[in-house]
């Protein structure tokens, strides 16, 4: 009998996902790169997806595992909608819990789904921002950053966060963080998408670039 095979390391990976709450919803952002080791293999992947009219999930880590999670959640939603009228859709919190159970189950089989998932939702005039890690640990916060962003962007997001942050302020802050990550994280490209989760529903922007300056790079120790 062949030995059981597990994912021992991720293959095609996505880098950070950033998210912050503002006064009327949530801003989520990520770049569009799928790295194959250090090779920038796929440059136009979308790592955020709308799963219900109120909920968006985004993820870092193994892209194929992320796609599988997206599929699982999509079929869960499909199972829960349909013939029954005036039925309440699953809440963002319920979706986060469900993902957490899937992740915990996989880690308990010593074969984890190699991701850090961010769940952002806006339902019944309330915003929800939470995450699930590779082990199934779940938490909620006003600002969340996965991957390398947990080290570089999270402190900046926390510093910039306030109760009544406006949408424009939130987007500016997120863009600053994306730029910092682009400068320091070698698994990032200058092609980003920003998603808005609010009363009006969910919109994911087309990919865009940020203005960068490399003239001062020569003074950075270690830069070629």
């Amino acid at each position: 009998m062949d030995p059981t095979k597990k994912t021992l390391q991720p293959y095609v990976t996505g880098s950070s996902v950033l998210a912050i709450k503002y006064n009327e919803g949530i801003i989520v952002a990520a770049d569009t790169l799928g790295s194959y080791g250090s090779l920038a293999r796929f440059t136009d992947l979308q790592r955020m997806s709308k799963v219900t009219n109120h909920t968006l999930i985004g993820g870092s880590g193994d892209i194929s595992d992320l796609q599988q999670i997206q599929k699982t959640v999509e079929s869960l939603i499909l199972e829960n909608t349909g013939f029954k009228k005036d039925e309440e859709p699953l809440t963002p919190k319920e979706i986060q819990q469900y993902i957490s159970r899937v992740m915990y189950n996989r880690r308990s089989r010593f074969d984890p789904l190699w991701n850090h998932i961010i769940v952002a939702g806006y339902q019944n005039n309330e915003s929800f921002l939470g995450a699930v890690d590779i082990f199934g640990t779940f938490y909620e916060d006003n600002t969340i950053a996965s991957g390398f962003g947990a080290y570089f962007a999270q402190p900046l997001l926390r510093k910039g966060y306030k109760e009544d942050l406006t949408k424009d302020e939130a987007i500016d802050l997120i863009k600053t963080c994306l730029k910092v990550l682009f400068y320091r994280d070698a698994r990032t490209i200058n092609k980003f998408q920003i998603a808005e989760v609010s009363e009006g529903g969910i919109t994911i922007s087309d990919p865009f670039e940020l203005e960068t300056h490399w003239e001062i790079a020569d003074w950075q120790e270690g830069h070629l």
Binding site: N80, K84, E87, L90, T91, K93, E94, Q97, Y98, R101
Partner: peptide
């Protein structure tokens, strides 16, 4: 309750 951390919808159970 275990999977969703929320009480089940009555109609879902009945169906």
């Amino acid at each position: 309750k275990y999977v969703f951390e929320s009480p089940m919808s009555v109609e879902k159970l009945v169906s």
